Amino acid sequence: MQENIIPEGTRDLLGDECSVREELIKNVKSVFTKWGYDEVITPTVEYYNTFHYKTQSLKEEEMYKFFDSKGRILVLRPDMTVPIARVVATKLKDHKTPIRLRYESNVYRVNESLGGKRNEYTDCGVELIGLDSNSSDLEILITALEVLKVANVEEYKLEIGDINFFNSAINTLGVKEEEKIRLAELIEKKSLKALEDFLEQLDIEEDKKQFFKRLPWLFGGKSILEECKSLTFNEGMNASLKYLEDSYNKLERLGFGGFITLDLGMVPRLDYYTGIIFRGYVQGVGNTVLSGGRYDNLIKVFGRDEKAIGFSINIDCLIQLVKHESVSHENKFAITFNKDNETLAMTKALEIIENGGMVKMFPSEEVNKVIVAGKGEKNGN
């Protein structure tokens, strides 16, 4: 094996990419701070049971696993919401709600080979704990939109759904749990032919089969809600549509209507989300760059029953899209010197840095004095 090859799903960042990453993180964290979120840092390494036995929200094969000196299974954290739920239920168990936490962390996920997704990436996110949907969903949605805005991309959209729309539809039909999970997977992936074939195997009424065949297509602007209303068959589904409509109207009044779409066929992680769910997309990136939702049942598995909602943005997805000018230095200097005037060169460098400038030093035996060049760098370095 060649020692200069890095593992699949990882990457090196160099030069401008590091500057762009730093600027992105700073801008995102600035939004979180302005909305009153406090930073939390959790270990890179967690116990496997924290993610597997308590939540079942991630598949075993998606986690990097290894052993400690006592034979216990450890993992590189594949998610940040679960560790924060653990912290809220333990270290913050006596804190009054609402609790607002933010983070910036690398997470590690074993994705499908050649699937185009990173196995290591930087997540910046927030979690709002202790408030119900009527008190916190709008705040989180606006915060997500503000984050997409400061990411300095050309065009972005926030796609919103509600997991209860699907759950209210399927829970009245008496299907098995494994059938429910399989149906959700096919709808989520919009695997239309496989979905049609699977529905034919289910012992449900024909009109219900037609509804689930239509569900992957129920996305678009506010007008899609009218079509959805004609397809519902219980009060739970109607309640979900009413909530989405109210949320859309509030965002529209606040000036965000042009950045919102709705997707009733969004059904990820049935055992995790409990209400509104959303994803952020930007022009030029095929994958989701931001995702989140309400998860009212997660924290209580760690011993504290609190409602919660949050989201995270994948910084690495955006690096190639952000213009490098946004992180350029106005006061950039190159100082060329020889060993005889090194002290003088360093004095000038410190003066420039103290005044907010940036310096690169170039030792050279070809000069006999200190040469300071402003807003440019020698030899293009």
Rank of each mutant, 00 (worst) to 15 (best):
S191D: 11
N167F: 06
L192F: 13
V153F: 02
E200R: 10
I181Q: 12
K189H: 05
Q201K: 15
I170Q: 03
D137W: 04
S135A: 15
E127H: 10
E177A: 11
F165Y: 14
I140S: 04
G174Y: 04
R182Y: 02
Q201G: 11
E200S: 13
F166T: 07
K190F: 04
D137I: 07
I181T: 13
L148C: 09
D197I: 12
I163F: 05
E177C: 00
L145R: 08
S168F: 07
F165P: 01
E127D: 13
D162Y: 04
E139T: 12
E188M: 07
I160R: 08
L131C: 10
K149M: 13
A184C: 11
K190R: 15
E188Q: 15
I160A: 09
F166I: 06
I181H: 06
G174P: 05
D197C: 00
Y156E: 09
K176L: 08
K180L: 06
L183W: 05
S168M: 05
A184R: 02
K190Y: 03
S168W: 05
K193C: 00
S133I: 12
N164H: 02
S191V: 01
D132M: 06
I170N: 04
K190I: 11
D132F: 06
E146K: 15
N164V: 05
I187W: 04
I163G: 02
V150K: 02
E206V: 13
L186T: 07
L173G: 08
D197K: 13
E154S: 15
A169Y: 02
A144K: 04
E154V: 09
L192P: 00
I170D: 04
N164S: 14
G130R: 02
Q201M: 13
E196V: 05
K180Q: 13
S133E: 15
N134D: 15
V175C: 04
C124D: 05
E196I: 06
S168D: 13
K189I: 02
S191L: 08
T172Y: 01
A151R: 00
L131P: 00
C124N: 10
G174I: 12
D203E: 14
K176N: 05
L148E: 09
K149C: 11
F198L: 10
L195G: 02
K149T: 14
G161C: 07
D137Q: 09
D197F: 04
E178P: 00
T172G: 01
E155T: 13
I129F: 12
N167L: 15
N171Y: 05
D197E: 15
E206T: 14
L195I: 05
I142Y: 03
T172Q: 13
E177R: 08
N152P: 00
N134C: 07
R182C: 01
E139A: 13
G125H: 07
E177T: 10
I170M: 06
E205W: 00
E159K: 15
I204N: 09
K180C: 06
F166S: 08
L128V: 07
F198I: 10
D137T: 14
L131S: 10
F198A: 11
N171C: 08
D137S: 14
